[in-house]
Write a protein that binds this DNA or RNA. Sequence first.
DNA 1: AACCACTATATAACTATTTATATAAATGTC
DNA 2: GACATTTATATAAATAGTTATATAGTGGTT
Lengths: 226, 226
Amino acid sequence: MSLEHILLGLLRQPASGYDLKKVFDERIDYFWAAELSQIYPTLKRLEKRGWARCCQAVSSRGPGRRVYETTTAGRRALRDWLAKGPEIGDERFAYLAQIYLMDELGDLKQTLRFFTVLRDDFNRKLEALRRLERYWVEADPHYPDELPPPDFHVHLTLRMGILSLGGHVRSCDESIRRLRARMDREKHTRPGVSKSTRRKNPHAPPRHKLALRPPDRKSQTPRARP
Amino acid sequence: MSLEHILLGLLRQPASGYDLKKVFDERIDYFWAAELSQIYPTLKRLEKRGWARCCQAVSSRGPGRRVYETTTAGRRALRDWLAKGPEIGDERFAYLAQIYLMDELGDLKQTLRFFTVLRDDFNRKLEALRRLERYWVEADPHYPDELPPPDFHVHLTLRMGILSLGGHVRSCDESIRRLRARMDREKHTRPGVSKSTRRKNPHAPPRHKLALRPPDRKSQTPRARP
DNA sequence: AACCACTATATAACTATTTATATAAATGTC
DNA sequence: GACATTTATATAAATAGTTATATAGTGGTT
């Protein structure tokens, strides 16, 4: 479970569940969100497994704090997780599913609005990361390649966020441009709407003849086995 | 729930749970994965709610099929989901969490290996999408902007996949270049290792002094309220 | 006849995550 | 003093998703 390992990483500096929630909202949020109701049981699980230890502490305001810290066994588990290679392939993108099915609306204006909102959202996040990078440039004379190891790795994460979001924004821009052009074309050809862009029967089930994967070429199966 | 709505979209063409699983693995997989054990109960839920109807059918091989289809109410629910704007902000990226914490390994060679695997994985997916696009170009004279509505929207999805993966591959390349340079620098400065890149005490908890968000500027809070 | 691969549905057990709610102490404000 | 806010932990209930397993028919291979 990724949350367990992220907590293991963060708890290399002692923190309470409440502290960790703030850390998540401030900087982990970009790639992993977590609620308090998930953090607390997970901390107990880590402690029971011997990956974290806990000690009571007093708070100047409010009830007592349970401050956790990664143990040696916990750091070993964290290293194992990191060493066994990238965890990839489980990502889910609801907005891509929405675009995939959006022909259902039968209204390019709505699709255009969708992409505009999406574009703004991606761009807002991109601007936040770029602002952050500018802040680092100004604040740290070691920036970017002489940064000490933890910051260097955090910076690699930041750069991946920036380049990835850049791709998303560009993609939205391209889609918006194409949608506008298509709407223009539709307007000018009315009422003799182009054959290719009109649905013959708008209530008929759409046939996605173009799959996202090209058809299998069975002949390509390797068969060298003497 | 996104899975419900994706099924609603796919079931505009009648299909059984087994059929749907194949559709997921062939083309939905890129942005949403689903297991049979999740598809079957969800289909029953859709039927109970009146969003899909089911009729028995015989199979030439194997047991009887339960073929589902979206109802009018189901299509309305699908349209509502699409019309209420992009579902965004819940994405989780375990591999970014891994990079964020990878200073723990204290070994740039392992980080480099990690990025190489990641790069290959992104690139393999990118190549698959590009191959698919080439296949479309050759197969469809309407490509890309005269495509009928369902294919046009599927193509927008494909393009976002291509541009997003492109950003990821570029980001990996950048990281790999920086890692190589840093390793080179470390090698040449040994044993007098540069102050900035060496951990004083490799067992001390890392202090991520650079947060992914710049410090709050409290003074910026709007206060115009007469 | 034994075995495997494929089609097809189903469910149990587990893990992960979200939403809502309860509790309680301290501080500040109207 | 009443009330809101912040700090702090905790749990219940619901939802979402994975892994493993069971069942069963059909066709092909050994």
